[in-house]
Amino acid sequence: MRKSDPLLSLFALLAGLFLWTLAGSTRSPQVAAERLDPVRRLVSELGLSDPALFTEARYTRHLSQADLHSAFQDHPMALEHFPSGSLLAPPRPGAHGRGE
């Protein structure tokens, strides 16, 4: 056995795994759709508008429903103190056009 044989086998294995992840991705749209069916049914039944990712404050829990047009969410001069809030994108002009 030559010195480079284990290295080449390792490369072949890693490249194989890499291609497998890419192939898995092209297969998965249908799988994803099927897996998401119960979530879509729940969202449609309850009319949910936001994921439960940021549950720390009401305006981070339902970002799409928050009062984006009021500068201070809690009271005048309230500083944004929730970590999620500080990571939020400022609204893009036109993205939340209606009502603001």
Binding site: T21, L22, G24, S25, S28, P29, V31, A32, R35, L36, P51, A52, L53, F54, T55, E56, T60, F82, P83, S84
Partner: peptide, 15 residues
Amino acid sequence: GWAVLYPAFRLTPVI
């Protein structure tokens, strides 16, 4: 962040 409730979820591999 400071949230107590955080969902346990598994994402579908999409690349």
